[in-house]
Design a protein around this nucleic acid. Sequence first.
RNA 1: GGUCCAGUAGCUCAGCUGGAUAGAGCAACGGCCUUCUAAGCCGUAGGCCAUGGGUUCGAAUCCCGUCUGGAUCACCA
Length: 592
Amino acid sequence: MEKDIVKYIGEVLSDLYVVDPKNVAISLERTKPGIEGDYTIVVFPFVKYSKKSPMDTAKEIGVSLKARCEDIDSYNVIQGFLNISMTHEYWVNRLNSLAQAKKADDDSNKPLIMVEFSSPNTNKPLHLGHLRNNFLGDSVSRIVKAAGNRVMKVNLVNDRGIHICKSMIAWLKWGDGITPEKAGVKGDKLVGDFYVLFNNKYKEELEELKKSGLSDEEAEKKSPLMAETRSMLQKWEAGDKDVRKVWEMMNSWVYAGFDETYKKIGISFDRIYYESQTYLLGKSIVTKGLDRGVFVRDEDSSVWIDLTKEGLDRKILLRSDGTTVYMTQDIGTAAQRFAEYNPEKLIYVVGNEQDYHFAVLKKVVQKLGEDYHDRIFHLSYGMVELPEGKMKSREGTVVDADDLVADMIETARSISEENGKLGDIDEAEKNKIIEMIAVGALKYFILKVDPKKQMVFNPKESIDFNGNTGPFIQYTHARICSVLRNAKAQNISVSKRVSEDVRLLDKEISLIASVCSYGKIVDEAAKKLDPGQIANYVYNLCKEYNQFYHDHSILKETDANIIQLRLLLSQQVALTIKNCMNMLGIEVPEVM
RNA sequence: GGUCCAGUAGCUCAGCUGGAUAGAGCAACGGCCUUCUAAGCCGUAGGCCAUGGGUUCGAAUCCCGUCUGGAUCACCA
C-alpha cells in the first residue's frame, strides 16, 4: 500500500538525516506518463536536511528505500525526482487483495451527515438551475455515504408566502375550476402557469392605474389584485378554511408534478420539510437572544443583529410587526435539526447568491452560543447560464427540466437505434437503458464541473454522447460486461486470485494502480464536497481501460494466467466504474 | 462603493494543499471495424494559464495591485 511506502520513506529519512518524519511532508505521487516508474517522491523538501544536491539526496534515499522495502523493484532519479518501480508480484497482490476486499457494513456507529437540497418553490416548475442543485445534493450525499458516514437527505419545500397566494388568486379568478387532469398538464406546470398569469394581469392593472396619473409606487399600493393577495395571506395565516382548502389542493397538484420529475431523474429524500410548518420556528430563539442582549430592538420594535464588527452588516431577524423573516426560519430549522438528529454536519446545497445569507446564519448561531455553528456548511454552487447569459422567464429562455430530460431521451434513443446494439432486447428493458443513458449524460455533464464555478449550458448544441461524457463511461462498463459474458460463455471463470508469476504490461500496472486509488479519491471528493473529483477519476480510468482494450486481447490470449489477470482486472475496473457512477447518481447498463 | 467568487486552446472544462514537457473532450483535418461492443482507439493542428509586480531552487497554482465577468449588501424568500 502507498501508506507503507510513505512509512518506509519516513524511516529512511529518520535514519539518514536524523529528522522526525512527522515534521516532514512526504508526498508520494503516481509517476507521470512517459517516465519510468510507478511512484514518484519529490526530494526537494528533504534537501535542507541532507545538505546535499537534490540528485545525491534522491540517490541515497533510493538506495536505502530499496534495501528496506522488498516490493521495490528498481528506481531512477531525474533531477529532484525519485521514481520507484514496484515489483510485478506487488501489483498482482494489490489486484488480488482488491478482489478479496470485504465490505464492512455496520452503519450504526458512523457519523450522521444531513444534506439539505432541492428546496423548490411550489410556484415554479423545476428548471436547469434546479437540476444542478438536485444532482449536486444527491451526489454529495452518496459520496459522503461512500466515505463512511450515515446520510440523511432532506428537502425544505417553500410552500407558503405571498407568492403562493398569487397563483391561488389567479386560479380562483380565471381558472374556471380547471385541474391538471382536465387540462392534461403536469400539476407543477399548471400552477406555474397561474403564477405567470397573475403577474401578467397585475402588470396590466398597474399600467391602467398609471394611466390615471398615479406614480409607480402609488399604483402598487392601490392595486386591487395585490390587496386581495395580501388579504389572502392574512387569511391563510389565520387558518381560514376555504383558503387552506384551495392551498392544499393546488399544492397537492404541484407535489404530484414534482414527484414525477424527481422519479425521472432518480432523486429521493429521507425527509421533506415544509415551510408552512417551519416558518414560525426561530421566533422564540430570537426572543430569548434578545433577552440575553445578543440582538437589539429598534425603536419601531423590529429586532436586529449587528455584525458590522465581523465584516458583515446589520441584519433583521424580526419585523416591526413581530413576524419572522427567512433568517429567523433558518435559525429555527437548524436548531430543530440539531435537537432532533444531532448531525455531525449539516450541509446546505444552495446557490452562491445565498453566500451572504449563510455567512450571517453561521454568525448568528455562533453568537447565540450554539456549539453547532461550526457544523453548518454551505455547499455553494454557481449559476447555470446559457451562452447568451442568464435564463430569463420573461424572454422565455428558461430551460424546463422535464423538457430537457425528454429531449435527452429522444437523442439517446435515436443514437441507440443507429448503433442497433439493443436489437433483441425487449421494449421495456430497452427504454430503461435509454433513459439511463439520457439521464446519465445530463447528470455527468453537470456534475463534472467544479460546483463553485458557474457553468455554461448550450441547449442548442445539446449534450454530447461521445468523449468525456456519461455515456462514454457507461459504454466502457457495458463493454467490460460483454467481455465477461463472453468469458462465461466459453466456460472461463474469473478467479479471485491470480498467479504471482505473471509478467505485467505497463498499461496493466497503471490500471491496477488507478483502481487502487479509488478510496483516496472518494475521501478527497467527500472532503471537498466535489463530485467533479469522482467524474474526473472515473473518466480517466475508462480512457485508460479503453486504450488497453484496444491494444490487447483478453480472451484470445494464449497464457491462461494472463487471461485470468486481465479478466480480474476488467472485473475490478467495471466494479469501480459502477461505484463511481453510483456516487454521481448514474446507473450503468450491462448492454448498450 | 464594501464583501465574496471566477478568468487556462475557437467552445466546454480538468489541473490550484507550489514540482518534470500545462491536460481532456467538442469542433476541424487524417487514419483504424472479416478479430473480445467503433457511444471506441490512434494521429495532426490549436496556449504570453486575463494582466503587472512579488515570494523561491521552482509559480497556472501562494501574496499584492489592475482589468473583465458574476453574485451579494431588503421589514422578499
